[in-house]
């Protein structure tokens, strides 16, 4: 067990330090890198308590996909410049700071609720009636619960995500005029008759070709 707790403390230390560094570091891209480190160490913690499926899914979804998008956004938009504007003395009355304060207030109260729950932890642990067997892999266990008891909630959350995705696409989609598009079907199905057009050209007048 010694080795186990040594690894636990190493990973949790990395997780806490990198979580602090996300907010502290001046360079926004570094913040995202620390966020990734945080995700990785937390998924290591998941694996250590035996929740290997959750740990791997955490790596695939958050580190493999979400954080890549974060990194893209941070690299593309010059966030550092905008941050300078928000906190400068001549703040032009934007809504960033009030909204940010509201969100952090809500999160603060949520944290208080979570920490308050600690008081009841022994009672909760005693009342746990689910016996987790080590024989069945936890992927199978999660599947057994998720696709039977909670199938409705699972599917509704899937639908919400789909709607959010389509909504994001609709909001950002712009029809641009004058863009040349390639259509394979059109190119391949072109015949000689339509491709070549013989035109009788009049002298000194030329031919008008429509594009």
């Amino acid at each position: 067990m010694v080795a186990h707790s040594v690894f636990f403390y190493i990973f949790s230390l990395i997780a806490i330090v990198s979580a602090v560094m996300v907010t502290v570091s001046k360079n926004t891209v570094h913040s995202v890198f620390f966020l990734i480190l945080d995700f990785i160490s937390i998924s290591c913690l998941f694996i250590m308590i035996g929740a290997e499926f959750l740990g791997m899914i955490m790596l695939i979804v958050y580190v493999g996909a979400v954080a890549v998008l974060f990194l893209f956004v941070v690299m593309m938009l010059n966030v550092a410049e905008q941050k300078g504007q928000w906190f400068s003395s001549r703040w032009d009355g934007g809504t960033h700071i009030p909204v940010g304060l509201l969100v952090s207030l809500i999160i603060f109260f949520e944290l208080i609720v979570v920490i308050g729950g600690w008081k009841y932890k022994p009672d909760l642990l005693n009342s746990l009636s689910i016996n987790i067997s080590t024989e069945v892999t936890n992927t199978r266990t999660i599947g057994n619960v998720l696709y039977t008891d909670y199938i409705l909630i699972f599917q509704i959350s899937g639908m919400i995500l789909l709607v959010a995705m389509i909504g994001a696409i609709v909001l950002t989609y712009r029809e641009r005029a004058g863009v040349k598009r390639q259509s394979y079907v059109k190119q391949i199905s072109r015949e000689r008759d339509e491709g070549v057009d013989l035109v009788e050209a009049e002298r000194n007048k030329g031919v008008k070709i429509d594009a």
Binding site: E52, F53, M56, L59, V63, G64, T137, T139
Partner: peptide, 13 residues
Amino acid sequence: NVGILYLFAVSSL
């Protein structure tokens, strides 16, 4: 147990 997920996760990193 989650070998294939591990491979997938590492390749996505």
